[in-house]
Design a protein around this nucleic acid. Structure first.
Length: 318
DNA sequence: AATTCAGACAACCGCGTGGGA
DNA sequence: CTCCCACGCGGTTGTCTGAAT
């Protein structure tokens, strides 16, 4: 198929933002004659633009039936519904929203709605809960917050001397360790393993996302794999709510009762443990296995700035 | 007051497709 | 049937503006 000769070969043509007088010329011409052939229109209307640019300007801005201003909640809902039905077919979606252009809807989607969905833990492409463990990039923050609850303080096994030597490194290592604990807690429940078993813990520390995303991870996992009691127990445990119904089946610290056989094999658990090494300040440290962390060390970690997030986290997970 | 940064939106670019010659 | 043109679409980039530092 032949390509449309675009405006590229007409280098003298103006590009960029439209001037009011250009708008006026275009508007007057189209209202008088209709647009006809967009390719011929610029010459006829006395515009130094390519037809494509004129068409875009007319359809996205100058058309008299264009509705400007904020999208209403109804419109937003409709966009959401239609997008779940048609995907990124912006023109199809726009056809159901009188006065809105495909470009406007696309922009609104990309700048507002997409982010909203992501924050809610929903994949904007599929409109389904995000089940990928890439969400675990939120874990450091979450787990640091969990640490302030002291839930792990007595069971942590990080070498305290190492930690005290460098508070920043210690913080990092503790977070890593907490990640491990959380992953273990999830994977030793009588549930199928999470979708991405070969979790690279190092990758979790790329960027600190938000706690809502983490909570959604739990809920996604719940909805995908069932086992509400178990995950609720994990959540309760991390939010300091103590043992909840079903905690026993997760083998959580402090839980009682007979736990069903874990779905995760010993070798898998060992694999997770073996991944618990990290580079701090250029050196690679491995968390030792048996020394409990001291209260002083906890105090030195300065994790209290996460209190606000923790409150949100508690609310969400309940 | 100056600078930096992020969000919002306008505009552009390149490709696919339909239809006429 | 093939070629070419014009249009429309979706993705991407550019620009502006206001908030934050």
């Amino acid at each position: 198929m032949g390509r449309s000769p675009c405006c590229d070969d007409e280098l003298a043509l103006k590009k960029g933002p439209w001037m009011p007088e250009e708008d006026e010329k275009l508007k007057n011409y189209v209202e008088k004659h209709g647009h006809g052939s967009w390719r011929r229109l610029p010459k006829l209307a006395g515009l130094n633009r390519c037809g494509k640019s004129c068409r875009l300007r007319w359809t996205n801005y100058l058309r008299p039936d264009i509705k400007r201003g904020k999208f209403t909640e109804d419109e937003e809902r409709l966009i959401l519904d239609l997008h779940s039905l048609h995907g990124n077919k912006w023109s199809t979606i726009a056809a159901s929203l009188p006065g809105r252009t495909d470009n406007e809807i696309k922009n609104y989607w990309n700048t507002h709605m997409r982010k909203k969905l992501l924050r809610a833990g929903i994949d904007p492409a599929t409109h389904r809960p995000r089940a990928d463990l890439g969400l675990l990039t939120d874990l450091p923050k979450l787990l640091a917050a969990a640490a302030t609850l002291g839930g792990f303080a007595t069971s942590l096994d990080v070498n305290p001397l190492q930690l005290q030597a460098d508070a920043a490194a210690a913080n990092h290592l503790v977070k890593l360790h907490l990640v491990q604990k959380l992953v273990e807690a999830i994977t030793t429940c009588s549930l199928p393993p999470p979708p991405t078993p070969n979790l690279n813990l190092m990758a979790l520390f790329g960027s600190p996302p938000s706690l809502p995303t983490i909570s959604n991870l739990f809920h996604n996992y719940l909805s995908n794999y069932g086992g509400g009691d178990q995950i609720a127990a994990v959540a309760d445990h991390y939010s300091g709510a103590g043992a909840a119904a079903g905690a026993s089946s997760c083998g959580l610290p402090g839980s009682s009762g007979s736990a069903p056989p874990p779905m995760v094999s010993a070798s898998r658990e060992n694999q997770n443990k073996s991944e618990l090494s990290t580079s701090v300040e250029g050196s690679t440290d491995t968390i030792s296995t048996d020394s409990p962390i001291s209260n002083d060390t906890w105090d030195s970690l300065n994790l209290t700035d996460l209190d606000d997030d923790l409150g949100y986290w508690k609310d969400i997970l309940r």
